[in-house]
Amino acid sequence: MKKATESFDFDKTCTLAHLEVPEDQKEAMKKSIDDVLGYVETLNKLPINHLAPSSHAAENELYLREDKPVKHHGLLMDENAPDWQEGAFWVPQLKA
């Protein structure tokens, strides 16, 4: 495993996550994440390499839905939308 504390690229991660941490809080935030990444290295000591990964708690059968349309009303789209125009959600330009 790469040493997390050395490889964790804070700015790149912020860009991916679409978050911006104020300059004066960056160090503390980065350190708290470094601490956790350091802590989770304890997993390296476990005898788990041979195990299959679990993405779910239980392995039930997946429920499949029939293809029957249901019409929804009262979705409050306009009420909840920050900017509702012509029956659609307005967003600012995609590129500067």
Binding site: M1, K2, A4, L37, V40, L43, N44, L46, P47, I48, N49, L51, A52, P53, S54, S55, A57
Partner: peptide
């Protein structure tokens, strides 16, 4: 290194 390992650890716990 992280997510996959954690999923294996999850199997270990189960």
């Amino acid at each position: 290194a992280y997510y996959l390992k954690a999923q294996k650890a999850r199997t270990y716990i189960k």
